[in-house]
């Protein structure tokens, strides 16, 4: 499944479903994020996501942000999984590494080549290692 760059951010479409509504959302693939999916209220509330709790998170400046934690279905590249979804009053829509792992997807992000793709993680290319003695 192909995505695209928007202002140097790799983006891809995902479908998020709560207890009723379903919506296609364009999200940033954030490989520096070890979470699942992050949504702002304006996107999350209409979906009727199931509320699981609230979480305290410490920021770099020492302050604490408390956010709501929900669960919902996420579909990407034909694969549907149940994911934790962190929702904030305002935030970027981010796909974290744990969601990529749940989806079993490998992100190919080539900034210089303007290329974004998610593929099956099982379709990894075989890396051919050369003879160390042949290094020039």
């Amino acid at each position: 499944m192909h995505g695209n760059f928007d202002d140097f951010l790799p983006k891809i479409d995902i479908e998020v479903q709560g207890q009723g509504a379903k919506k296609t959302i364009t999200a940033v693939i954030d490989t520096g994020n070890n979470g699942y999916l992050q949504l702002p209220y304006i996107e999350a509330f209409p979906l009727g996501l199931r509320l699981d709790g609230l979480q305290d998170t410490s920021l770099a400046d020492g302050s604490i942000v408390q956010h709501l934690v929900c669960r919902g279905s996420v579909t990407c590249d034909g694969v549907t999984v149940t994911s934790a979804i962190d929702i904030f009053p305002k935030c970027h829509i981010l796909i974290g590494n744990r969601l990529l792992s749940l989806l079993k997807r490998r992100a190919i992000i080539d900034v210089a080549g303007n290329y974004v793709e998610l593929t099956e993680s099982s379709a990894l290319p075989t890396i051919q290692l050369g003879d160390p003695g042949e290094v020039n």
């Binding site: 509320l51 699981d52 709790g53 609230l54 979480q55 305290d56 998170t57 934690v69 669960r71």
Partner: peptide, 17 residues
């Protein structure tokens, strides 16, 4: 969260790392 639901039922929990 799955463990919590299994043990306590559906609820509104406090979560922290």
């Amino acid at each position: 969260l799955d463990k919590a639901e299994e043990k306590f039922g559906k609820g509104f929990f406090y979560i922290v790392q």
